[in-house]
Nucleic acid binder design. Structure first.
Lengths: 192, 192
DNA sequence: CCCACTATACCGACCGGACGGTTGACAAAC
DNA sequence: GTTTGTCAACCGTCCGGTCGGTATAGTGGG
């Protein structure tokens, strides 16, 4: 059964894809309007027709990234069985259940994130909102105070370590860390 | 009792200080050779006499940063009482005992870090070594596997959250989080 | 059906400015 | 008189953004 090949994406999408590819492959500095245009198969003028400035391009990139992150987390959350600390456990799954394939996508996300921050920290606002929303839901988990925060921070730290090439954690260390954090995700932990 | 005012720093130091100030105050993009020179009170040629290229300037910045981070951690570690998980507890103290004054310094460190990463990720190597060393010592703490890692990752995540303006954690949340992590820093935790 | 007009999508040459780096001169120190 | 530190002027390049133009596809009047 052949899948119908997806229709060719429209120009703005193609341009955003191209920009992402460049940022991921050759770094923030390589993202110029010309390069993005060429990679997308349009002229610089064509690119600027859809994104009126570099900032607009970055904003587009960030908006899409925020949407994707939100959707990804939602999917992980939906896959979690009911539990008093469901959101917290979703974060754990999100952090550790990463099929290796996704790593590339995370690298891309990080590259976009950093590119945007580099240009103007305010561009991160869409993502900030996504995470603020997650944090709000986290607060409703029936966990001792601080546990959910610790788990989330640890996930973020792991993510950062990967992004900046600070850790190369082996599977064993990763599993141990996950186990330790999972023990924090037990409602009323520590007082049977 | 008046402290003897420190002798005026030499030119390379003045230049590095100036570059740091610029990166912190006006972002990565604002760090140009001209701007750094002007801020340091020398001409561009004068700057290039001491740092032959922008990359050299960034390498200098990063080297100094790595030294300072290492020294700072060492100081925190020395202040810790003997304990089976001394290194781990030093990390906790490092993360949470932050007198507010230091926050500014951390912002500066992060700005330098990001500027370097932006130019060339390989410039981060000196810092990578510092953290690799800390991680190695962490492994010698008598803690259940994963606990020290979790604590370190949480610290990193908190740091990242602050850098990118993702969290604004209140003191209460911070204290709760610290308490949760501190419970992980107890040797043989969980099995009396 | 044809024509005039308009809107959409795109092109690529060009401009202005910034930035990294070079050069040659110069003065004080040794 | 050579070395050391500093300067100002300059150069080539690159990049973001502008602009005049083109091709295609409607749209409405006659």
């Amino acid at each position: 059964m052949l899948e119908r090949p997806p229709p060719p994406p429209d120009a703005p999408t193609r341009i955003l894809d191209a920009a992402e590819r460049i940022v991921q492959a050759r770094g923030v500095t390589a993202l110029t309007l010309e390069a993005a245009a060429r990679e997308a198969g349009v002229s610089k003028g064509g690119l600027l027709y859809h994104f009126a400035s570099k900032e607009a391009l970055l904003a587009g990139l960030l908006g899409r990234l925020a949407d994707r992150v939100a959707a990804e987390f939602e999917a992980v959350l939906d896959a979690q069985p009911p539990h008093l600390a469901r959101t917290t456990r979703a974060i754990l799954a999100w952090t550790f259940d990463d099929p290796h394939m996704v790593c590339e996508q995370h690298q891309r996300a990080a590259a976009v994130f950093l590119a945007a921050f580099h240009h103007d920290p305010a561009l991160l606002d869409p993502i900030r909102r996504v995470f603020a929303d997650i944090r709000a839901r986290l607060r409703q988990d029936a966990l001792p105070p601080g546990h959910a925060l610790a788990i989330m921070a640890a996930g973020d730290g792991l993510f950062m370590g990967r992004i900046f090439g600070m850790y190369e954690m082996d599977a064993e260390g990763l599993a141990a860390m996950r186990a330790a954090l999972e023990r924090l995700a037990v409602p009323q932990a520590g007082s049977p």
